[in-house]
Design a protein around this nucleic acid. Structure first.
Lengths: 202, 202
DNA sequence: GTCTATACAAAGATAGAC
DNA sequence: GTCTATCTTTGTATAGAC
């Protein structure tokens, strides 16, 4: 039988869960520990009891989010078995799916990286440099005329930026707002096609 | 004779100048009015004397930044005299030039739009919706198979996102870090070529 | 207009009872 | 482990002298 959803999480887990939510929505500085405690339905003192400080709790959440963000991409880049086209399809598909469920993630990660670059250097030190990846080599083979870093930037930009700029798009064009999800769904197929076209540019 | 650079700005202007700098670097919540006062070399009380509150000062800065950000794009979109290709060239060139001098602007604007969408609805109400622009019509003519909003998103993404993700890129690949400016310079020519290639995608 | 001093509020952290 | 009460720090804003 299916495992029943745990409705009574431990206090520690309730705090972490609330912290994910509030930090993602408001960022570190604008978040008050009281917001988190309230969202978790626990007493403020417990937050410090379990996590020692606001900063420690934030770093925990940040680590998680950075992992889920880069973990989606890094293994794909290094897969020697899949073709370049497969990699592009996989990355586009995964990111668009994940970001549809986590719309605040792009800005959270971009801000975190800007505010504390050192914090996640350690986290990624296991990963080979992107430019030495299988993906980069395959890009270079298909288009020796354009630096692979440019094309790497492009696939990330095409998949992730729409989610980061969604609020802006909705003001610039309400129509885009209402059909946003449909547009992103279409992108799963369009991004690989666009990338293919870009690979022919000298 | 050339106008001599004003070395003794008024206190009011010194505060505004410092506010631009600090708010752009740290965002609203993480900025303390004392930081601004210190950066301006004036007394803290003067900040409130001239601008009444931290929030009012921030809105002033935000208005300026949003104007310079969108003001670069909106007039181009509506120009009936220029071709689609010209518009793409102009937008890429202007944004990459401007962002090279204002690297913090993308995240500042993205955050501002997310945190207070209503604040800049008013600012843009003069502008026609992007989807009814000359630019959108020209996109549609050149490629009836792909929604113009998708291609609009793409040009913005390709120009702006690299600056927003710069800190991340530098960790993922130190090489990209050192040659970042060169890569962006190359992009002024590459973005139009890529867009041209994308316009042929069905 | 500009400064010093200070009021007042918000927020992070902790002590100590249960 | 959990709570109430409180301490401390920080940060915005203002009063009042010059």
């Amino acid at each position: 039988m299916a495992k029943k959803k745990q409705e009574t999480l431990s206090s520690e887990e309730k705090i972490k869960e609330a912290a994910r939510k509030v930090f993602m929505e408001k960022g570190y500085a604008a978040t008050r520990t009281r917001d988190i405690a309230e969202a978790a339905g626990i007493n403020l003192a417990l937050l410090n009891y379990y996590f020692r400080s606001k900063e420690k709790l934030f770093e925990l959440v940040m680590q998680e989010k950075l992992s889920s963000f880069f973990g989606l991409m890094l293994p794909v880049l290094q897969d020697p078995a899949s073709s370049l086209s497969d990699k592009i399809h996989t990355i586009a598909d995964r990111y668009i799916n994940m970001l549809a469920d986590n719309p605040d993630l792009p800005l959270f990660v971009l801000n975190a990286m800007r505010n504390a670059p050192k914090k996640f250097v350690a986290m990624l030190k296991g990963a080979d440099h992107v430019l030495h990846s299988v993906f980069a080599r395959q890009l270079k083979e298909q288009n020796p005329d354009v630096a692979p870093e440019q094309l790497f930037i492009n696939i990330i930009a095409l998949c992730i930026f729409p989610f980061a700029m969604r609020p802006g798009l909705e003001v610039l064009s309400p129509e885009i707002g209402v059909q946003f999800n449909t547009l992103m769904e279409e992108r799963k197929k369009l991004v690989p096609k666009w990338m293919k076209a870009m690979l022919k540019v000298k």
